[in-house]
Design a binder for these strands. Structure first.
Length: 808
DNA sequence: TTAGGGTTAG
């Protein structure tokens, strides 16, 4: 574009605008329209000039022109308003087009509020709006999500019988779509006697925004049946939906349609096409389109880099990014492409490379984009360096709900659920609006902590915001209630869901499993098959572990055998783990060992661990030596298991062997995870480590436990010293057991939760055998219900019994 | 037309 010519054009447009103004002022006639056209034209030309300067990297001149532009834009409103104000009242009353013209000027690019205010003023003034007025006002309502005015207009239209106009109806559809009221949009759309391409596109865009793949497809077919052919705008709307739904065949069909319609050369269509192929995992197709495009813009390049990353082709992505940089050396790199590359490094867990890239772009002088910052934040969290993520978060100048969401879920993934809850509160305090993804990160934090109260609050909040409409949010909700001990509430939420996916069913089956309700889990699984929901690999892990916790050995074996035969799901190592666990905890150690020997996969440490734990419970020391050899042949991977091995030697009184194992363990740099338990009292979560004396109420807690111990002894309890694996005096063993983290938390609960309220304690490891026995007796002494949730299930203690029937 | 945060199991 020629700069001089542009400047000349602006000049003449300005002059003409001035003329128009003069003429308009004199005649009060429809010159106002002319005036608007001229002013808009010069604004458009100015905008082109700014872009030109920016492209040439003349930042300062671009800024100066931009300032002029702002003045001009501000004046447009003034200008139009001045003309309007000059019109005498009686004339104004008669001429609706004057109002329409001004409303249209405001509704075009804002300020939208003025358009709506003017519309109200017009009605109050006694001027009747026309079919020309409504679409324009509705556009402003849509922009501001002003449902009140929009809905009122809709009502007026129905009363006046003006609702048949294509433009008005299309504007109504668009208004409802933009306000998220899809139902109302459908209603208007279905009632239209004629629909043009714009109406179809509006409705399609609405369904696309809600991810309704089936509806989008149906509409596209229907419009063609009615003789309306999709245009490039339609195609560009449906392509991302097709990509999201992974519908390759359909995508290829649309590709063909693009070729037939000759819109293939369009940059926007081309970009949407390559993006679709990228999402479907067909990188070669995407690349072929990219290479064939004669005109590419920044979006095209960024989309291509993103496609490479999505398809795990890091090398190609990086190469394209470098090429992009080389071709636009003066510009800052596109934040979208940069974020894509960082995402690629996150996938590879290559923090160093990502940091280098980050530093490099900072050096280039690009302002740190919020999106890029958020990508980095999530990179740190995903790579497990959560402290770096927290530090980076503090250093960020701008934070939005995505930043908070990324950090909240990052904390949970790194076992810092309490920090996640704190962050959520902080976010609330700073007035940052949580989104559905934030809640999806928050629920797992509540699940982890068994923190029902914040979970319930977040549930209420989600209902008010309509988040629970989202299947994934409801899935997380089901999981939260189940893990907080409210299995019946979980089921109610599950039943109320109007749409369920495989994750919903899995979450519910898992819920039954951790509550030891194996039969319910099986029954739900059968229900799932009846309604036609296909199970996946996770379903079987959930089902098998549910059988395992409930001691349903025959049922578990039956489903294990059918998963390959009936459902064509190849058992993974995790499935074998469940089945070995099921058999060995049920006492069939030989059968379990047989499965291990015959399985087509190499048994890993967890498999041996399951068998080894059972060896301890059933005191089968003869198998231990054999397993121990197998474990040692695993090399460094076997380290974690040495804890158990040394424990078994200790139990058998073979202290020297136990010590040898521990020395070996130390050499391999293994750290035992300390057992910790926590309990919520008055909205505060109190955490305890084994033998912990750091709690302010420590003295009272210890005294309470000693008091309980004395009573327990009267009832025939003796500490099961073989759960202590250190070679120490019996008396000391007793104390080590007495101050186990779960007992500390229970004692704290008894001291601080008054009346007969039940006590809920959560533990980060599996419950210790001695604690299990002790808690049963404590429920008799205190007449309290105590629930202990460990890593695999709930134990409900009451009246000397446990819901697990001592099978755990 | 591209883009950051997200649910179940182990």
């Amino acid at each position: 574009m020629d700069e001089k010519r542009t400047l000349a054009e602006i000049k003449s447009a300005k002059l003409e605008a001035k003329d128009a103004e003069r003429v308009a002022m004199q005649t009060f006639r429809d010159k106002s329209a002319l005036l608007e056209v001229y002013t808009k034209a010069s604004i458009k030309l100015y905008k082109q000039l700014v872009q030109m300067k920016a492209k040439q990297h003349q930042v300062n001149s671009a800024k100066i022109i931009e300032r002029d532009l702002n003045v001009l834009e501000a004046n447009t409103d003034d200008l139009a308003q001045r003309v309007f104000n000059a019109v005498p009242s009686p004339y104004r009353r008669r001429k609706d087009f004057l109002w329409n013209q001004l409303i249209r000027a405001y509704a075009w690019e804002g300020p939208f509020k003025k358009a709506i205010d003017l519309y109200h003023e017009m009605v109050d003034f006694g001027v009747k709006p026309t079919n020309y007025t409504y679409p324009v006002v509705l556009k402003a309502c849509a922009a501001l999500r002003d449902t009140e005015t929009g809905v009122k207009i809709h009502g007026d239209l129905e009363r006046l019988g003006l609702g048949a106009d294509v433009f008005v109806c299309t504007a109504l559809v668009d208004f409802y779509v933009k306000c998220g009221c899809l139902g109302q949009a459908w209603e208007v759309f279905d009632g239209m006697p004629h629909r043009d391409i714009v109406a179809w596109n509006a409705m399609i865009a609405g369904c696309a925004a809600h991810g309704l793949f089936g509806d989008v497809l149906g509409l596209v077919l229907e419009m063609q049946e009615e003789g309306v052919s999709p245009n490039s705008s339609t195609l560009v709307t449906i392509l991302p939906v097709i990509g999201e739904a992974n519908e390759v065949t359909l995508g290829k069909a649309v590709h063909g349609l693009c070729l037939r319609k000759g819109v293939y050369g369009d940059v926007v269509v081309g970009t949407a096409l390559l993006d679709m192929y990228g999402r479907c995992g067909l990188l070669n197709y995407a690349r072929r389109i990219f290479d064939g495009m004669s005109l590419k813009n920044e979006v095209t390049w960024s989309a291509m880099v993103g496609a490479c990353i999505t398809c795990d082709s890091m090398e190609d992505g990086l190469q394209l990014f470098r090429q992009m940089r080389a071709e636009n050396s003066g510009d800052s790199p596109s934040p979208v492409a940069l974020a894509a590359v960082i995402r690629g490094f996150a996938k590879l867990i290559d923090v160093e490379a990502a940091k280098q890239l980050h530093g490099y772009t900072l050096k280039l002088g690009s302002i740190l984009d919020l999106m890029v910052g958020n990508t980095l934040l999530s990179l740190y969290a995903k790579c497990g360096i959560i402290n770096d993520a927290l530090r980076f978060f503090e250093e960020m100048n701008f934070k939005d709900s995505v930043s908070y969401s990324a950090l909240i879920s990052g904390c949970v993934q790194n076992g810092m659920a309490e920090e996640a809850l704190k962050l959520f509160r902080k976010m609330w305090l700073f007035g940052v609006e949580p989104e559905s993804a934030t809640i999806m990160g928050l629920f797992p934090a509540c699940s982890y902590l068994a923190a029902l109260r914040p979970g319930r609050c977040a549930h209420g909040f989600s209902i008010r915001r309509g988040f629970t409409e989202d299947v994934s949010v409801s899935n997380a909700l089901v999981d939260m209630y189940a893990k907080c001990g409210k299995i019946d509430v979980a089921r109610i939420v599950f039943n109320k869901m109007h749409k369920r996916d495989v994750v919903s069913w899995n979450a519910m089956i898992i819920g039954y499993g951790i509550h030891g309700l194996g039969l319910e889990a099986i029954s739900l699984f059968q229900n799932m098959l009846v309604v036609g929901q296909k199970p996946d690999d996770v379903t079987f892990i959930s089902l098998l572990s549910a059988c395992s916790h409930a001691g349903l050995i025959a049922e578990g074996m039956q489903w294990f055998h059918s998963m390959g035969k009936q459902f064509s799901i190849k058992p993974r190592i995790d499935h074998y783990l469940c089945i070995v666990d099921l058999l060995s905890r049920g006492g069939s150690l030989e059968d379990a060992y047989k499965i291990i020997r015959e399985m087509p996969l190499e048994p890993d440490i967890r498999i041996w661990n399951a068998l080894l734990s059972a060896c301890r419970i059933y005191k089968k020391v003869e198998l231990v030596e054999e397993i121990s050899n197998k474990i040692q042949s695993l090399g460094p991977e076997g380290t974690g298991n040495l804890v158990l091995l040394s424990n078994i030697y200790s139990t058998a009184g073979r202290w020297d062997d136990a010590a040898d194992v521990r020395v070996m363990q130390k050499g391999l740099g293994f750290k035992k995870i300390p057992g910790s338990s926590w309990i919520e009292v008055d909205r505060v979560i109190h955490a305890f480590l084994g033998g912990d004396q750091s709690h302010p109420e420590s003295a009272r807690i210890h005294a309470k436990l000693l008091e309980l111990q004395a009573e327990m002894k009267k009832m025939g309890y003796s500490a099961e010293a073989n759960f202590v694996y250190q070679d120490v005096e019996e008396e000391e063993k007793e104390l080590i057991l007495l101050y186990h983290s779960e007992k500390l938390a229970v004692a704290f609960g008894l001291l601080n939760i008054h009346g007969k309220s039940p006590i809920l304690v959560t533990k980060n490891l599996r419950v210790c055998g001695d604690c299990h026995t002790a808690l049963k007796i404590i429920t008799i002494i205190t007449e309290r219900r105590i629930t202990l949730r460990d890593t695999v299930r709930f134990h409900h203690f009451y009246n000397g019994k446990c819901s697990c029937g001592d099978f755990w």
